[in-house]
Design a protein around this nucleic acid. Sequence first.
DNA 1: CCTCCACAGGAAGCGCAGGAGT
DNA 2: ACTCCTGCGCTTCCTGTGGAGG
Length: 412
Amino acid sequence: MSIDEIFKRMLKSKIFRNRKVLMPDYIPKELPHREREIERIAITLAPALRKDRPNNLFIYGLTGTGKTAAVKYVLSRLESKSSELGANVKSIYVNIRHRDTPYRILTDIATELNVRVPFTGLSTGEVFGRLVSKLKELNGIYIIVLDEIDFLIRKHGDDVLYKLTRINELLNRAKVSIIGITNSVKFVESLDPRVRSSLGEEEMVFPPYNAEQLKDILGQRAKIAFRENVLDTEVIPLCAALAAREHGDARRALDLLRVAGEIAERMGDSKVRKKHVMVAREEIERDRVGDVVRSLPLHSKLVLASILAASGGGRINVTTGEIYEWYKRVVGIIGIEKVTFRRVSGIIGELDMLGIIQTRVISRGRYGKTRMIVIAADPKTIFSSLEEDPMLDPVLDIVEQEALPKDERRRI
DNA sequence: CCTCCACAGGAAGCGCAGGAGT
DNA sequence: ACTCCTGCGCTTCCTGTGGAGG
């Protein structure tokens, strides 16, 4: 197929009418099953229209429960209403997962306010100072949304949050409200009580969607996204059911539907069918694992290779100690300095958080306390992603021997 | 009931790279 | 050219702990 043909095919898609509405950053005109939450956010933020500072708001809920969408939705309505009324309300949205240092967050906020700051070189205090002096000149209500704040707290503590929640004391006319969004409920406990109480002037919980609700969401978007009658009847229920199993994640459900459509299109099929969804599921997972593994630093890759070897390709559980033994051997083969046990333990923790492996702390009594480690992603995908790093060449042969003995084809 | 293993995981801090400001 | 800043991957040192075996 020539490039021109590919482009031509894409332009007159047989499947999609408007693929954009299935993208994760699309904010639909209506958010089914979030009416109550939207109402509460609106009630909380409404005082901004009277030029009063809205209470800070703290929102919890698992990924894909519509937190971000609901907040953005209310904010865009609020902003258009306020410009209608001549009130000065501005919102600033920062996603902390991608900008996870105090410095970057502050520069992002500053940039939104047209304060020019270099992306490195200054102290965080200096950036904060510039931010404050800019805000001092300004008038109006500023609503700062900090999405996925748990990423910040985990690595850098709540210092910035504390400063931000107290920023109003330094201002005269402008007023700042903060909306914090987090996926993990547990993290709230680790907050400084002062931050917690000021950030949580209002609190809300977004419950996960169930399969029925996911079906509604998918149905609503599918009407716009797909051409008529291209979806097999089972497709939406299947996407909904698969995502409901993974804690009711609407983003997951939409991804599945979109990728299934893309696959159907790629295969030249005129309809999206069940089998496309199943392929989509594997493809999404493979991409995710591949991206994560590829971007790992060298020693993390080596530890991962060691886990692969020690566990026989994920068939048996292994302990941190066993992995370290393997790791030392692997490092010896390539002839580089080894890192400490403590570091390897840390790396194992990081791999766990990334969902590549799963760990569980257990006690074997007399024989000590340790972590039991299982590979959580597809070992073959991990292996082939590791293969892309030429540094690992000398060790992967041995890893492969351990990981895939005798019968070559292995599926979970 | 107590011990003691094999680690977990917190705290502090170090050396380096990358970038500003002067 | 020099100083100062941050993030990162890492080391060092540390205290804490569930439960099998004595």
